[in-house]
Computed example of a mutant assay.
Amino acid sequence: MLKNRTLFYHFLATVTIIIWGTTYVSTKILINKGLSPVEIFFYRFLLAYLCTLFISHGKKWAESYKDEFWLFVCGLSGGSLFFMAENTALGITLASNVSLLICTSPLFTVLLSFLIYRTPLRRKVMLGSLIALLGVGLVVFNGSFVFDINPIGDALTIVASILWAVYCLVLKKLTSKYDTLFITRKVFFYGVLSLCFYFLFYPLEIKTGLLRQPVIWGNLLFLGLIASMLCYIMWNYAVKELGASQTANYIYMVPFSTMLTSAVFLGETVTFISLAGALCIIAGVYIAEKQR
């Protein structure tokens, strides 16, 4: 029974990553139609918050100011600051750089867990992570190695990677005291609230003409209800049951998922090198997970 329960949470993490891998296609469509990355994030998190509030509205605040502060940190590290750092990096460095560097998040999760919680560094976990990261590189670069170092853009990507690691670790700390739906709702709330401070300097322009188009609101509904609300709930449950470091390893699967989605919806070619990379990712994640 325990094994089946564990497999279920691995399944949740896998489904979450598959869906997150498709968001690049959906986001690309919205950007091509005229929405900015910040606008897309705002609308998707606002939708996610309102829907989560509908199903989880009993408890308003954490039991202490300290816990409320950590929920705020989750809203920043797993929401506004993470997406702003990642999206800004996409604008000033190569997308391949971002795709590869963002997948260092599991390594940062393991390292931060060691530094903060003194979690042992297992050799085969690190080996599995490095194999998976190699696979990510093969999928991202697909035989054409172009890694043009851009100090600011690449640094922002590393910041985003560390932010997600922080989110997973703080989330694990909170899940021992609070309901997952409550935590997820607060993450969306503080993600939206913190972005409002950004709009004080760069006001939000509501493009009503665009928002009325079916392709726009259709993709926003997908990003808000499925990729944000549903996926954050599933991810948070997985972190609660499997742990921050173990769940973070699934981040390696995002480029693999994006590769398959792009092949199906955008007609992009899947090469032998990208398939080899996919096998490395799967093998690396398997090695890392088997050593827990």
Rank of each mutant, 00 (worst) to 15 (best):
K60A: 10
Y65R: 15
E68C: 03
E68I: 06
L71M: 15
F72Q: 05
V73F: 09
L76R: 12
S77A: 15
G79E: 07
L81D: 07
M84K: 09
A89E: 12
A89L: 12
L90F: 14
I92P: 06
S96F: 01
N97R: 12
V98R: 02
L100W: 00
L100E: 02
I102N: 09
S105V: 04
L107I: 13
F108K: 04
T109M: 04
F114Y: 15
L115K: 13
P120M: 03
P120F: 01
L121D: 08
R123N: 12
L127C: 09
G128D: 09
L134P: 06
G135K: 08
G137R: 01
V140S: 10
F141P: 02
G143P: 05
V146N: 08
V146P: 00
F147S: 06
F147I: 04
I149A: 01
N150Y: 00
I152D: 00
D154S: 00
I158Y: 01
V159N: 01
A160C: 07
L163A: 14
C168A: 15
V170T: 08
K172L: 03
L174M: 15
L174S: 11
T175P: 15
T175D: 13
K177F: 10
K186C: 05
Y190G: 11
G191V: 03
L195N: 05
F199C: 01
F201M: 11
P203T: 05
